[in-house]
Design a protein around this nucleic acid. Sequence first.
DNA 1: CAATTTGGATCAAACGATTGACCGGCGCGG
DNA 2: CCGCGCCGGTCAATCGTTTGATCCAAATTG
Lengths: 335, 335
Amino acid sequence: MRTARVTLADVAAMAKVDRAVVSRVVNDDPTLNIRPETRQRVLAAIKELGYRPNVTARSLRTARAHMFGLFIPDFANPVYAEIIKGAEAAAAALGCVLVTGSATGAGLVGYMDLLGPGRIDGLLLAGSGEDTGLIEQLDRAAVPWIMLNRRSPAVERYVILDDERAARLAVGHLVGLGHRRIAHLAGPSGADTAQRRFAGYSAAMREAGLPDGPIAAADYTPAGGAAAMGSLLAAPDPPTAVFVANVASAIGAMERLREAGLEIPRQMSIVAVHDLDLASYLAPPLTTVRMPLEELGRRGVSLLNGLKPDDSVEEILAGPMALITRASTAPPPHD
Amino acid sequence: MRTARVTLADVAAMAKVDRAVVSRVVNDDPTLNIRPETRQRVLAAIKELGYRPNVTARSLRTARAHMFGLFIPDFANPVYAEIIKGAEAAAAALGCVLVTGSATGAGLVGYMDLLGPGRIDGLLLAGSGEDTGLIEQLDRAAVPWIMLNRRSPAVERYVILDDERAARLAVGHLVGLGHRRIAHLAGPSGADTAQRRFAGYSAAMREAGLPDGPIAAADYTPAGGAAAMGSLLAAPDPPTAVFVANVASAIGAMERLREAGLEIPRQMSIVAVHDLDLASYLAPPLTTVRMPLEELGRRGVSLLNGLKPDDSVEEILAGPMALITRASTAPPPHD
DNA sequence: CAATTTGGATCAAACGATTGACCGGCGCGG
DNA sequence: CCGCGCCGGTCAATCGTTTGATCCAAATTG
């Protein structure tokens, strides 16, 4: 059944009404006065012909694309997978599709070229740092955009998670287990999330009446985590527990601990931010703080919808957050 | 600089030519005869005004959406992450965007509703099984589609990888190490990939003059892998090596081996299909067969481009494939 | 009973780009 | 010196919807 293409006009012809009537029925326009039987005729014709509105034509006329964009640095990172899921669900609920692109820096600007005027109703920017050129391009194109899970100086368009609270949860767990010397394996100092997690760590330690433990920064990679763990171990008074800003770093840190012959959690407890499936497969399974990442994606799209290009958005998402206790944390050794 | 919206007409007015000329310059239409200086005027006006063609209007007129779709079951699965990367790159090279949706079964059909006529030029379906309803809907909508990495009975529209060869590579590696009793931890018997990997295993064993070892099927999850590994260990003459159809199952299998007190690789070698970053973080790092997943995504989009709704596609992708040797495989014990 | 409202639609102008058809002038071959 | 082709463009229809303006007849109001 090669239905060549069914348009409003076909339906109108079959139902013996004007195209305008069909359009108004389809969008159930409240200003339309229509006899019930006419409406039935139209509805029947639509079903009979299998009519489905042409989104492109509609977009052209209404100047709404019914499409949102989401840029992430890397599909392979499970953190973004969760964000995507949420964003996609929210978009679908609005009758929109989500196009997710992975690109950073200059790639982003190039990608934007594909998304010419009229193609997209709003853009979510997750992770990554470089936005030189992109932001002015977005402003020029008058497309609303929001940063997800990061802030940038002088940009009031973001929704982030409460990383500070996450850090408090993690540190609180370690303190509760009896740890006193708690190190922090931080994220890259330039990263906004890293700064907030560090702030939370510091605040939690202060509140517990403990001095900051040794601190080492690493990029969010296993290799970085391994190196930073090395420097933490070399500290004069080595910690009995470490709060790691990120699971990827934690993987490297655990490897380094294994090499050093330290048993987890008997000799060293470790807890990290972001609960990924992966965490439960590690040896030992890693205690983590579960963040509302899906919610973040959902919220991002919701805010984008109806946002004017000039509106500002500044939100710290207070979604459900939980400590997932696994085998990588335990009370400190009795020494 | 709120550039309200720049259209062809604006450019035409500024360059003092007809809109048609601008359009032809933009698309550099070979049938256009134009004086170089006029072209320069047009180009200058375009740059001056920052004109960018409206994709929606263009799509309406040309009936090409410059957009491809890709449906996957789950963003969290890194296998799909690689496929997406390739597909996205190929789309971008064609000047198109890729919209990736995660949905299976009925969700797919619902998602398709968002992608009404005129919105999409072609669809890639990766993984998952259920396609009741979807395929007829696609055919009715006359949108070309291809299955990625799986076949379905009576559907000649797929591009798959050479899973058989991958299995041979893995088994060959084990045979080369001296193993004689090699088990196969297979995928779900309904899955096309599982069948092909099993076929490759069987063929490789036969060619090596070895009898099939014990075989257990599992779904592609850690829990399934653990259970199946249990049944393999219970075999009368337990294997010294196992070829696992999938990394997720392999994770469970390794856990099970650890529980059973078997040392990897001293007492049991293990090799799995698909090289994911994750594999190198496991303890011990897992030997895998690297498949050209990115290439698969790329090829899918390339084939989709220009495909007629009725054309058929049947391709086994012979991309680069490699055994990545890590610490989970070694010669069998001397017993 | 004339004037006004209202129910039930219809008309037609957009939206922004593409593209086949057309056109005026000039050079040139016959 | 007439007709043809070519150069350098222009004209206008079209893609499928949306939506403000309009319109006709019947009903209501003063």
